[in-house]
């Protein structure tokens, strides 16, 4: 009795998670042309900080509902500290290098961050489970789902809407779009590209950490969680089209729904369904589903 409703709901919950991970990655790529492999480590950092905060919150016996603010706090904390340090301290020396070299720079960063996290938190698992079960469950088609997962969907939608609005309607956003479109001309027009980069990378870091922070209550925070997630995020972003916001949303939905359908109907192919989708999409749409037409520069 596998009807379609649970497949859709499971798929959408999974897609929301994927979207929050992927959106920061695609934003940074869109503006800075860096496919940030350390994104996964920043995600893990968000999860670890959340676990620590939630642990402290409950050991002090504070109002449990207040703990819902902690993931957001952790994300902003990680973003505002790690973002500028990485961008100002490392990445700015690397601009102008080949895209592949930039990937390797962030790969090196990933290796360093993984061990740094290990030095701070050790290899033991952490959990921040309290918020996850706090709100209880609701039923759809006879199956219980947690309300926390519903919040996750809500956050994903809000992040998507906020970013779309921010890019289209605010001055900062328009500056960003200008830089995405043509960095050199933007700089010539007097846009402070350096600052745009700093802001973009910080926002991207906050989003990465937010994904980890939101997921922390439903998983066990362990080493290697960031490495596991990075290829997943890559796949989503590549399927949707690198640097495209609606692309990330569509990519997340496709991967989420395909993954969920595989689990329900064909558990055997679940392991590599995502790569199959990625290969198929790239074969028929070599630059992903949403790719801006590039101006040819000669």
């Amino acid at each position: 009795m596998t009807d379609l409703v649970p497949v859709l709901i499971d798929g959408i919950i999974y897609a929301s998670y994927l979207f929050i991970i992927a959106v920061g990655l695609t934003l940074i790529y869109g503006v800075m042309k860096i496919l940030n492999m350390a994104h996964g480590s920043l995600y893990a950092l968000g999860a670890y900080v959340t676990a620590t905060l939630v642990g402290a919150w409950f050991s002090h016996g504070l109002n449990p509902y207040g703990s819902f603010a902690l993931p957001l706090l952790a994300a902003i904390l990680v973003g505002l500290v790690a973002g500028p340090i990485i961008e100002r301290g490392l990445l700015r020396f690397m601009y102008g290098n080949d895209e592949i070299v930039l990937i390797l720079v962030t790969y090196a960063l990933l290796l360093i961050l993984e061990d740094l996290i290990k030095l701070v938190w050790g290899v033991e698992s952490y959990s921040a489970y309290q918020p996850y079960g706090l709100l209880g469950t609701f039923e759809v088609a006879g199956l219980p789902y947690t309300k926390y997962d519903a919040i996750l969907v809500g956050v994903a939608v809000s992040v998507g809407v906020a970013l779309t609005w921010g890019l289209a309607r605010t001055r900062q956003g328009k500056l960003l779009l200008a830089v995405i479109h043509d960095r050199e001309v933007s700089a010539a027009m007097g846009i402070n590209v350096q600052r745009v980069y700093l802001v973009t990378f910080t926002i991207g870091t906050i989003l990465a950490a937010l994904a980890g922070a939101l997921i922390a209550p439903k998983v066990s925070v362990v080493p290697a969680m960031g490495v596991e997630v990075i290829v997943l995020a890559f796949a989503v972003v590549v399927i949707g089209g690198l640097g495209s916001l609606p692309g990330a949303a569509l990519g997340a939905l496709i991967v989420g729904l395909v993954g969920s359908a595989a689990v329900h109907y064909l558990p055997q192919v679940e392991l590599f369904s995502i790569y199959l989708v990625m290969a198929l999409v790239l074969i028929f749409r070599p630059k992903g589903l949403f790719s801006a037409a590039e101006a040819r520069k000669i």
Partner: peptide, 9 residues
């Protein structure tokens, strides 16, 4: 891992 990362950088 950190040693490898720093070497690469």
């Amino acid at each position: 891992q950190m040693v490898l990362g720093i070497t690469l950088l």
